[in-house]
Nucleic acid binder design. Structure first.
Lengths: 368, 368
DNA sequence: CTGAAAGCGCTTACAG
DNA sequence: CTGAAAGCGCTTACAG
């Protein structure tokens, strides 16, 4: 500021632009540069076809005057129609967690008004690679300008990301992250920390001499990254902060089939009568809650993930003591917004955006 | 829909407007009505000077075509300059809770772009009626088009609301509600439920045979409504849901002066050696945390309100076990938005908008 | 490589 | 009480 003033002692309008905050228009730049507004527009939008000297002059002036385009005028003139494709797991049965994301994205679309975009949703069966690839192909055919995807299936997702890169189509990750891709951003949970939160709650809820049962319900391995991180966080808490001195008994249940669950848990509880609390590392907490309720073990302190469907029911019933939530709707809206702001306004987001980890019990569940 | 079709079997464009979703402009309405766009504009904005028959005709057509103004065009033509005044408690010392609200309101102002408004902040000393009135007078003189206020001081706030009503200036409440006013909306905490949440956390954290100490730190009575509601909620939890069978010992401390606090608490703990947990009904939780830490009572389970300043420090130190938070920044932004959307787009908000009640401990405090 | 002009949908004087 | 016209700041053909 000082340098500028000493270099240019002449008091002209632009010296005061900061103070007067008079809005700078393309026309102002054009006048200063001695060119037409068409030329300024070409420079600002990198449309080429401008002599290098002219371009630099215009750029310098735009910079100096701190030009910001009037978005209202832009939206009015060219009703933007970006095509945004969304690739998400299909919400079904024990998986209706995913029903919130499309709503969040639609909300995002509403919120960008007066801008607009066209959304197309593609859904794949959660753990079905063939279906993922099929939907990915359909998505590519639709020729989106930008893509939002939940890259649950790692290999197949990487394949899609490569193709999007080739086509120079920007994409953002939601819910799950894959490191080392060109994703514009990732919006989701810090799974490790979410594991620590679960641990702290169980630690609060049960006596320090009681044992803790850790239940991993996983149908296949693709999702393990997320669950593993939660498990690691859970264990870490007891290394540096927790009071509990009991055993940490970890089991895996491959299936949500009630019979399989009952068989497995009956055996665990028979062998470990000192268990005081149960941690479920996934949103399928209700499966364990159902078992506990039916087998007169509701007194056990139960902590799991995600407020929805049957989880909400068992939290209401106080069979589940705490759920850890991650606001899927807000997450989805945020993801959409990042992609759109990049496409429409060249805003480059942070690579990672960890979302709040909500602690939910019966008393605040209706207000979260 | 069905009725409409059977009444009018002729297939015309407007029958399909729902499906084709072609945007309706003032010009379209004008053509249908056989008038000029100026007249349509007058009708839509209630600027009078229109023959009643014309007005009704235009209204009917606008309704039928489901006309929505193009906000980009509106913003472009008349750079809106609403004057919005904000009246908040001054954030100072043990009260920096209030430092977040101005930021949230500024964020709201950013978010309405391409619209704009002028903000003016007026701050009053938290419990100083004379200062409140002085600032209220300054606010009125500024001639705002809309007002955001935290009506902590009930009588003085009512006086201001009356004057705003006379001047037909819309206003919204933040943080605290006063029933029976013309406030456009209230955005804040459901204090009763927030009391229940606190109770549920203490209930989880301590043995059912331990006693609970309830501490109300209040300098004066104006704020009592909020604290009372929290106390009522707290007690109610143990009537219908809680496990704890211990005593609920309630005390009032008029002052945050450490000596006064120590004197009072020393006595309470001497008389009640069975206390296992402490509930502080206000954001001054850190005052009690400080006492507990200095007097070797950090093992007591401490629950209070608001994540900020010294509260955050003691939560980090695990002296405070849980804080219940209400996201002041988001609350402020939301409040601003409601007022603005009403002023600019005639959107009438719900009278009450209870915000999420966050449960915060050491493990999720950095992500909330 | 550059300029002049039209037009997006609305609001705001101005003229009658 | 009503209409015709100008103009907000930008983008998009079109002409040269």
């Amino acid at each position: 500021m000082f340098t500028q003033h000493s270099e240019n002692t002449e008091i002209t309008t632009e010296n005061f632009s900061h103070y007067m905050s008079k809005t700078i228009r393309i026309k102002d730049i054009a006048e200063k540069a001695g060119v037409s507004i068409g030329t300024v527009d070409r420079v600002l939008h990198n449309r080429g076809e401008v002599k290098k000297a002219t371009k630099e002059k215009v750029m310098a002036i735009a910079e100096k005057l701190n030009y910001k385009p009037n978005i209202a005028a832009r939206a009015l003139k060219s009703p933007t129609n970006y095509k945004i494709a969304v690739l998400l797991p299909l919400a079904q049965d024990d998986n209706i967690f995913w029903s919130k994301h499309p709503i969040g994205i639609e909300n995002g679309k509403e919120a960008i008004y007066p801008f607009a975009c066209t959304l197309e949703f593609f859904y794949y069966e959660m753990h079905n690679p063939a279906d993922f690839l099929k939907q990915a192909a359909a998505l590519l055919e639709w020729q989106a300008n930008g893509v939002i995807l939940a890259p649950i299936l790692k290999n197949e997702s990487l394949e899609l990301c490569g193709k999007l890169d080739d086509l120079q189509i920007p994409f953002v990750f939601i819910d799950t992250n894959i490191e080392g891709t060109n994703s514009l951003s990732f919006v989701g949970e810090d799974a490790y920390q979410a594991g620590r939160v679960a641990a702290s709650l169980i630690d609060t809820g049960i006596s320090k001499v009681k044992d803790i049962l850790i239940v991993n319900i996983a149908k296949n391995l693709e999702n393990v990254q997320h669950l593993n991180l939660r498990n690691q966080g859970f264990q870490s808490y007891f290394m540096d902060a927790g009071d509990n001195n009991g055993l940490k008994i970890s089991i895996e249940i491959p299936d949500t089939n009630p019979k399989v669950v009952k068989e497995k848990l009956d055996q665990v509880f028979k062998n470990n009568p000192n268990i005081g609390g149960v941690f479920v590392s996934s949103s399928r907490t209700f499966v364990i809650a159902d078992y506990l309720q039916k087998n007169n073990r509701s007194n056990l302190f139960l902590v799991g993930y995600e407020l929805f469907g049957k989880n909400s029911y068992f939290l209401q019933q106080r069979v589940i003591n705490f759920l850890i939530g991650q606001r899927p709707m807000e997450q989805a809206e945020k993801t959409f917004r990042k992609l759109f702001d990049f496409m429409a306004h060249n805003a480059v987001p942070d690579k990672k955006d960890y979302q709040p980890i909500d602690i939910i019990n019966t008393e605040n569940m209706d207000l979260v």
